[in-house]
Computed example of a mutant assay.
Amino acid sequence: MTAKIRYGVVGTGMMGVEHLRNIALLPDAEVVAVVDPVATSLGWARDALGAKADAVATFNDVETFAQEASVDAIVVASPNHTHRAVLEPLFGMDAAILCEKPLATTVADARWIVDRAAAHPRPFWTGMEYRFMPPAAAFIEQVHAGRVGALRMLSIREHRFPFLPKVGDWNRFARNTGGTMVEKCCHFFDLMRLIVQSEAVRVYCSGAMDVNHVEERYDGARPDIIDNSFTTVDFANGVRAMLDLSMFADGAEHQEEMTATGDAARLDVLIPPGELVFSPRVGFGQAKRVERTRVAIDPVALAAGSHEGATFFQHRAFAAAVRGDGVVHVTALDGLRAVQIGAAAEISAREHRVVEIAEVADQR
């Protein structure tokens, strides 16, 4: 490998540009190629690359990139429904791959990617930035260290802004995204698995599109993506997890909140401001003994993206895996498992019933 890891970025929309900005912060990395069929997106990439843009090769299609580019690592940030088609030629390259979440929009496509990734000689990484938010990482570390005792309940809340406009408005339709419970919530289902350290067995989701996009039409078609939901997930080890999602709560003080409750204590994390709140059990009528700490985030990493600095820390870990100095933290199989839970939640919301993971697990 060269002194610097040579990156290609496929898909230079909003998330692709965030990757470009964070790769630029790595001392041992350089972007040498970008790929996007849309001229506007390539313009955004040039703006993000700044003075280095003229030295970066530009491709309009991934097939030509796969034949001509010389890279050590590839970031796939193309629209969700394109991931399988985009990855097919990339698996023929001698390069590590980071594929943005969700791994695919269907369980069948995600399983195909898992099979191909297993045969790929270089590292394959599913992009799950939320694992790498410093406050979330500190929360997970403390739960795994036993600070709450035996974990019994996990609650995650995201109250945020609506889906942002994307090129071609592809994210307004479940056929392109897998549905909100796959597209957006795969992050949280991945966090659930990571924190609980078990696999999901059943899902119940109550959700609908009640506020956002209801007046929008695209070629006469009305968007069909969930904008609020409650989802309960039962895990094989007996832990229950719950996701509370609202995508019309952009005025909320905390965009994300997570609460782990065990037999000894409760631990909360509030994002932002990155505050950890530890509340041990004290017995009825006894004085509370709440402890509050705040997790600092590097301001440079924070400014380079919209994920509380997580994209930088993920890239730092991915670069270590590319060089052979670190492990793959988020595998293709992790990506598949998150898609399975999301797909089950979408079925549950539409059909108003509990869905066993076994029902979706073997789709091909």
Rank of each mutant, 00 (worst) to 15 (best):
N171E: 14
L151N: 04
V354S: 01
V339M: 02
D72H: 10
E351P: 05
S198L: 00
L243V: 13
D224V: 02
A48F: 04
A358C: 04
T106V: 03
E256M: 15
N60S: 07
P223W: 11
G309M: 07
E88D: 13
M258A: 14
R157H: 12
A265G: 13
M247T: 08
T259D: 07
L243E: 04
A66F: 13
H254G: 01
S206P: 00
D190T: 01
G220L: 09
K166T: 15
F59H: 13
A137Y: 05
S78W: 03
I140P: 12
L191I: 03
A345R: 01
L302G: 10
A95H: 05
T2D: 15
E30N: 13
L194E: 09
D224L: 03
F124G: 13
E257S: 13
R222D: 01
I271C: 15
I156M: 01
P102C: 09
V201L: 02
G11C: 05
A304I: 05
G146L: 11
K4M: 10
D263W: 03
D109A: 02
V10D: 10
N80Q: 08
V107P: 04
I226D: 01
A3I: 00
D244N: 15
R116Y: 11
M133C: 13
T2V: 10
E256Q: 14
S279E: 14
L42Q: 11
R152W: 05
R240N: 12
E100P: 10
R157S: 14
K166Y: 12
Q314P: 00
R84K: 14
D234I: 02
E351Y: 05
R323L: 11
M128A: 10
L302S: 13
A345Y: 01
V233S: 08
L333N: 09
V148N: 02
V182C: 01
G11Q: 11
I140N: 12
A136V: 15
A108N: 04
A310F: 13
I347L: 07
A208K: 06
A345N: 00
E356V: 00
V233H: 03
D219T: 07
V86T: 11
G179P: 02
A345H: 03
G305H: 06
I74W: 03
P134V: 05
D109N: 10
A136R: 14
V239H: 06
F132L: 02
F163E: 06
E253C: 04
R122K: 14
V38D: 13
S348H: 07
W44F: 15
E291L: 08
H352Q: 11
T40N: 12
V56F: 12
R84A: 15
H254A: 07
M93V: 07
G207K: 10
A358K: 09
I341M: 08
A208R: 08
A66C: 15
I113D: 12
G220S: 02
D28W: 05
T293E: 14
A119N: 08
S229R: 00
N176Q: 08
G335A: 11
A265I: 12
Q286S: 14
V360T: 04
A358H: 02
M1C: 03
P162M: 13
L154H: 00
L20Q: 04
P135Y: 05
T58G: 01
L90N: 07
